[in-house]
Design a protein around this nucleic acid. Sequence first.
DNA 1: TATCTCCAGATTGTCGACAATCCATCCTTG
DNA 2: CAAGGATGGATTGTCGACAATCTGGAGATA
Lengths: 241, 241
Amino acid sequence: MLAPQASVEEGTLADRASTRLVQAIITGELIQGQKLNEAELTSLFGIGRGPLREALRQLEGMRLVRRIPHAGVRVVQLNKDMMADLYSVREALEGMACRMAAERMTDEEVNTLLLLLGQHAEQIEATDGQIYIQSEGDFDFHYQIALGSRNQMLIDLLAGELYQLLRMCRYRTSRLASRTRPALQQHRQIVEAIADRDGELAEMLMRRHISGAWKSISEMMDEDHDSKPKLVSRTKTASGS
Amino acid sequence: MLAPQASVEEGTLADRASTRLVQAIITGELIQGQKLNEAELTSLFGIGRGPLREALRQLEGMRLVRRIPHAGVRVVQLNKDMMADLYSVREALEGMACRMAAERMTDEEVNTLLLLLGQHAEQIEATDGQIYIQSEGDFDFHYQIALGSRNQMLIDLLAGELYQLLRMCRYRTSRLASRTRPALQQHRQIVEAIADRDGELAEMLMRRHISGAWKSISEMMDEDHDSKPKLVSRTKTASGS
DNA sequence: TATCTCCAGATTGTCGACAATCCATCCTTG
DNA sequence: CAAGGATGGATTGTCGACAATCTGGAGATA
């Protein structure tokens, strides 16, 4: 279960609880669909219910939990439909971000991207193509491009709520996705287009990169779904409710 | 000032406070940049600080307020950059929504859209082209198209956080935007493309519609900005009681 | 006079206790 | 025995009070 002690000691208790919960949900420490009991969490975190409830409200805004009045909050269920929605939205948003980044990024930022590609290539060689996808935060390729768009709202969306959901997807599908080398190659092409200040091409390549990733993940999920009886889900995979 | 009594009596106090605050911010009852004092709001709403703080966390997630730890929350300042960002994001998102809607909407939904256009035309004639933009909620054209996309994440974004920000923009610029008739004409073309199930064209028309709207608003803001000596100050934004 | 320090008031952050609501179980009743 | 309703426990929603932090100004010192 979750470690009873927080690692950082800065910020308000609500904010700290929020980041801890985000991490716990993304890594799977908190199972999808699991009911989050306030009393348990408060005693676990050693905080009162006030800050905890504020944190939960924040998580609700990030779509990481679903809250039903008088019935508690549950960790979100990442079904295939939701992931498809996420990748579609990312395709539109990151495509735009990529075009803007090509137009607005400084040369230094482009160099940073190139450096990133080098590091990723090394990681792939060192781990034989396993953990490329796991790179996070400042080191994430897509994150850097979002920053380059200079569109704060876009940055907030891609680096905030949608990014957390994406990390959640990656954690659940990392054992499936083994297409790190083609991904790296596509990243190279994208950076090349950005370096050439070719916004149109950069957008197109990014969109293709994301839709291709989804196609690959989608297929692998189907195979995985067939082989295993899968965890407890609602009656049908179709759009619920 | 805000009315001291809530109109609806359902849901938790936090949720009710949230919707009231959203409304107050959008309509300008709460001035942009204004500091939100918890004590004032609690006595005004007749609720405790717990629910109020939860509501404020929620508003923060919608980008309607900015919170600084130990320094309180302020209503967001809608400057031109932020509005430009919003319209860019909308262009990408609504463009995609429009394409998906053309592919996925039922014929009944398309008919609903046509009906909407008729109502809007009537309103324009009745008010001589004034209040078309103000239509909201279920009756909003863009909202209906978002619903037609069948992408829940897209719907949440466009009908949720981004929609509130858009309404806020509209309230601030309604006196400027008098291009209701060309907008209606563009809406007609979009519905036509959707009815023809031509997703590509529908997307393109929607993107052009939104970017055109922004260009118009942007120019009018510049003119308005020149005529007046600016009224937004960074400090001491008179927290009038 | 300008600047620094320190204090008091105000505001935000946090906690514990109480009230309202929901859920599962058991009991009654046909 | 099945169906419906009552009941107790658990959980969420809410409030008031206390602690931590910030802000603004008064006063001292160079």
